[in-house]
Simulated assay, not measured.
Amino acid sequence: MAFFDRFVQPYRIGEKNFERGRTAEFRRDETKAAAYFATAATAFDDHLRKKTAAHKDVRPSHLVMAGICYARTGRFEDALHTLETCLEAKDIPDAFLHAGYAAAKLGKTKTAIAHWTHYPDWAGQRIISTALKTILRTIQSADEPDLQFACEAVANAIRAQDAYNRVDRNFRDRGQRDREHRQGY
């Protein structure tokens, strides 16, 4: 298989491993998820490097996936930079969510608040939206906010929203719903 690897574009490797990582996360297999996100992050590094060298724009969807992979692998500075670059090009709900998460992990309270405040209601992700409003009230009312707690609350909201979306998708697959909730990528 190594022979054919050179014919596969890095962004495809990144996309596939991103999806595998999200699936492993949903199954709560953190070890596999971490491995998939690390592989995806490496592939997106290569993809972003090639696009930058060629002076070409990167698709916002690839920036979001790269930023999420960076956040999942603990590369919070890279995640914040990549997701903010994405948000300059297009408002993608997951970019706001994960940029705020990365900023909170870096201790940048004002930046986290700014990103989470701009999380759009049109995303149709009620569990995340409600959790963010609660988190924002808590952070803004505290003299010294606990950003680690905020990050854990965001991670729990993402898991809960993913579980809800999977059940909702099953209903849509059986024809009980007529439209799919889009995340913007």
Score class of each variant (00 low, 15 high):
41 A>E: 13
67 G>Y: 01
89 A>C: 13
69 C>Q: 00
29 D>I: 04
38 A>G: 00
185 Y>M: 03
67 G>N: 03
140 Q>W: 01
153 A>N: 09
65 M>T: 03
136 L>V: 13
129 S>L: 12
162 D>K: 09
96 F>N: 12
137 R>M: 03
160 A>Y: 00
133 K>V: 06
130 T>A: 12
154 V>F: 05
146 D>G: 06
5 D>E: 07
125 Q>M: 10
170 N>P: 04
113 I>M: 04
156 N>D: 11
114 A>E: 13
42 T>N: 06
65 M>K: 06
160 A>H: 02
40 A>G: 04
39 T>A: 12
123 A>L: 00
173 D>P: 01
28 R>E: 12
38 A>R: 06
91 D>T: 15
16 K>S: 08
58 V>H: 14
53 A>N: 11
88 E>T: 14
96 F>P: 04
39 T>E: 14
53 A>Q: 15
181 H>M: 14
179 R>F: 14
49 R>A: 13
75 R>E: 14
67 G>F: 02
44 F>C: 03
132 L>A: 13
42 T>G: 02
38 A>W: 00
37 F>V: 02
66 A>S: 09
167 V>A: 15
6 R>V: 08
127 I>S: 02
78 D>H: 10
89 A>H: 15
5 D>I: 03
179 R>C: 09
7 F>S: 09
126 R>A: 06
15 E>I: 13
144 E>K: 15
125 Q>Y: 06
136 L>T: 13
61 S>W: 01
119 Y>P: 00
21 G>H: 10
134 T>K: 12
138 T>I: 03
103 A>C: 06
172 R>P: 05
47 H>E: 07
140 Q>F: 02
51 K>A: 15
142 A>T: 11
5 D>H: 03
175 G>E: 03
114 A>P: 03
58 V>E: 15
5 D>F: 03
183 Q>D: 10
113 I>N: 02
106 L>C: 01
83 L>M: 06
184 G>L: 01
90 K>Q: 15
117 T>M: 12
32 K>R: 14
117 T>C: 08
60 P>G: 05
62 H>I: 12
76 F>L: 06
53 A>I: 11
150 A>R: 09
29 D>G: 02
166 R>L: 13
173 D>A: 08
58 V>N: 13
47 H>N: 13
140 Q>Y: 00
14 G>W: 09
91 D>M: 13
55 H>A: 10
164 Y>C: 01
162 D>I: 11
137 R>I: 02
29 D>P: 01
63 L>D: 06
166 R>H: 14
122 W>C: 09
135 I>G: 08
169 R>G: 15
119 Y>A: 00
148 Q>L: 12
79 A>G: 07
34 A>C: 09
175 G>K: 05
40 A>Q: 03
153 A>I: 04
85 T>L: 10
33 A>I: 05
177 R>T: 06
20 R>A: 14
156 N>R: 10
151 C>D: 05
132 L>D: 12
166 R>C: 11
42 T>R: 09
165 N>Y: 15
116 W>Q: 07
107 G>S: 04
12 R>I: 07
86 C>Y: 01
154 V>R: 03
98 H>T: 13
148 Q>M: 09
83 L>H: 05
128 I>T: 04
33 A>W: 05
69 C>A: 02
92 I>R: 05
160 A>G: 01
167 V>I: 15
170 N>M: 15
13 I>N: 02
36 Y>D: 12
